[in-house]
């Protein structure tokens, strides 16, 4: 039974589910739906607090690194209006590829990472 729940928890990102419900309406129905998710949300929160299956070393920010000789450009391209999302399509600035856990907590194989990356010389 726990294996089944673990599989479900690996495949569901609670923050995304909550965001969908919270933004579904602004006159109270979304809030009520959010309230109805209280039981599953409590289950997931508690399970993760005990099992910590999403915890990992955050190498991308915890590794000491010194940047030097920075050069940069920032060129305005165009003004986009009436966008339904506050984030541009394909934004990937928070994606981490070198972790054995994916961003949502699911496992990635060490071989899978080695297969898709170049050899570091």
């Amino acid at each position: 039974m726990e294996a089944l729940f673990a599989q479900l928890l690996d495949s569901v990102d609670l923050t995304q589910v909550l965001a969908v419900f919270a933004s579904s309406d602004e006159d109270g129905v979304g809030a009520v739906l959010l309230l109805l998710l209280g039981g599953p949300a409590f289950f997931m929160f508690t399970y993760m607090r005990y099992r910590n299956t999403d915890k990992r070393h955050r190498h991308e920010i915890e590794t000491p690194a010194e940047m030097n000789n920075l050069q940069q450009y920032n060129n305005f391209i165009k003004h986009l209006t009436r966008q339904s999302s506050s984030t541009i399509t394909g934004a990937n600035d928070n994606v981490v590829s070198g972790s054995l856990l994916s961003n949502g907590g699911a496992s990635k194989s060490f071989k899978a990472i080695n297969d898709i990356t170049k050899n570091f010389k």
Partner: peptide, 19 residues
């Protein structure tokens, strides 16, 4: 809705990674 200014950006730098 959101209005967004889209930019073309680039960064070029040296990086010394420790440990």
């Amino acid at each position: 809705y959101y209005d967004i200014d889209l930019y073309d950006i680039g960064r070029d730098f040296d990086l010394a990674i420790d440990n």
